[in-house]
C-alpha cells in the first residue's frame, strides 16, 4: 500500500467524522481495486471504512453515476473532482439527484489531462486547487475531421465493428440511468441485438446523440470498454458540436438549462432548406 497523500489523509479524516457524527449515510469515493493500478467506487458506511478511501489517477469511474442508485439511502457525501461535479450538476437538472441530500466534498482531479479538473460545485473543498487546464482546442477532433469522409467512415466503422455490445460504456456513464435503455427495449426492438456492424453503428450514433449537451468527457466509458474502442473521439465531437452551436459546456453552469431541452429562436439553421 502506498502511503496516503495529503488529500487522501484529509479525505479519510473527514469521512470518518461525517460517519461518526452520522451526518451522512455513506461517503461515496474510491477504494483500491483487487488488481494493482485499479480503483473501484466504494461507499463507506462505517467510520472504520474511511481508511480504505483512496484518490489517484487510477480512479477512472465517474462517481456521479452511482448517485441515482443511492437516492433512497438518505444523505450521501460524495467525493467530486471536476468531471464528477459536472455530472452532478447535470443530474440535478435532470431530477435524478436532489442537491440538498448531497454533501459534496470537492477535490482537484489528480488526472491532469482532464479539461475541467476542479469541481464546479461543492460544499467543502479538500487539498489544493489544480491549475486551470488550457482551453480545449479539440485538436484531435479537427485532425480527424481533416480526413476525407470515406476515410472517416471506414475508420469509425472499423473501430465500432469491434464492439461486442457488452454495454460497459453505458453502465458506467452518469448519463445512462434510463430504466430501459433503447437498446434493451424489446417491444419494439429498436436496435438489433447483434454485433453486426450496422447495429453497432446505430447503437453508437444514437448513444452519441443522447450524450449531446450532457457528456462531461470524464472518459469513464472509454476506460471501461474491454475492447479499447476510442469512444472519446465520438464523445468529444459531440461536445464540440454543442459548444460551437449552442455555446454550452455541459455541467459547468448550474443555472443554464440543458442545451438540448432549450432553444434560441436565432439558432443557426444553415442545414435546413
Amino acid at each position: 500500500m502506498p502511503r496516503p497523500t495529503a488529500v487522501e489523509q484529509q479525505l479519510r479524516a473527514r469521512a470518518r467524522e461525517l460517519l461518526e457524527k452520522r451526518e451522512v449515510a455513506g461517503v461515496l469515493g474510491f477504494r483500491a481495486g483487487t488488481l494493482p493500478g485499479t480503483c473501484v467506487p466504494f461507499l463507506a458506511t462505517e467510520p472504520g471504512d474511511a481508511d480504505r478511501l483512496v484518490l489517484n489517477r487510477d480512479c477512472a469511474a465517474n462517481l456521479a453515476a452511482w448517485l441515482p442508485r443511492l437516492r433512497h439511502r438518505g444523505r450521501i457525501a460524495v467525493v467530486a473532482r471536476g468531471p464528477d461535479s459536472r455530472s452532478i450538476v447535470n443530474l440535478v437538472k435532470e431530477n435524478q439527484v436532489e442537491r440538498d441530500r448531497l454533501h459534496i466534498i470537492g477535490v482537484a482531479d489528480p488526472d491532469d489531462t482532464q479539461p475541467v479538473r476542479n469541481p464546479v460545485v461543492f460544499d467543502e473543498f479538500l487539498g489544493e486547487r489544480a491549475p486551470d487546464s488550457p482551453p480545449d482546442d479539440y485538436a484531435d477532433i479537427r485532425e480527424f475531421e481533416a480526413l476525407p469522409p470515406a476515410e472517416r467512415w471506414q475508420a469509425l466503422l472499423d473501430e465500432l465493428s469491434r464492439c461486442i455490445r457488452c454495454y460497459a460504456c453505458r453502465q458506467v456513464c452518469p448519463n445512462c440511468y434510463c430504466p430501459t435503455c433503447f437498446v434493451d427495449a424489446s417491444r419494439p426492438a429498436w436496435v438489433g441485438r447483434t454485433p453486426d456492424p450496422s447495429d453497432n453503428v446505430l447503437f453508437h450514433m444514437v448513444r452519441a446523440i443522447h450524450m449531446a449537451g450532457r457528456c462531461v468527457e470524464c472518459g469513464a466509458c472509454a476506460k471501461a470498454c474491454p475492447i479499447g474502442i476510442p469512444l472519446m473521439i465520438i464523445n468529444r465531437k459531440v461536445s464540440l458540436i454543442v459548444r460551437d452551436r449552442f455555446g454550452s459546456v455541459p455541467g459547468t453552469d448550474p443555472d443554464a438549462p440543458l442545451p438540448l431541452t432549450a432553444f434560441d429562436s436565432e439558432d443557426r439553421e444553415e442545414f435546413i432548406r
Binding site: 472517416r152 446523440i209 459531440v238 432553444f263 434560441d264 442545414f271
Partner: peptide, 20 residues
C-alpha cells in the same frame, strides 16, 4: 425549435461519420 437543435446535432454527427 427544440427539434432544430436535435437535427443540428444529428446533421453534424452524420458529417463527422462521413455520411454523404
Amino acid at each position: 425549435y427544440v427539434a432544430r437543435r436535435r437535427f443540428a446535432v444529428l446533421h453534424d454527427l452524420l458529417g463527422f461519420f462521413g455520411i454523404e
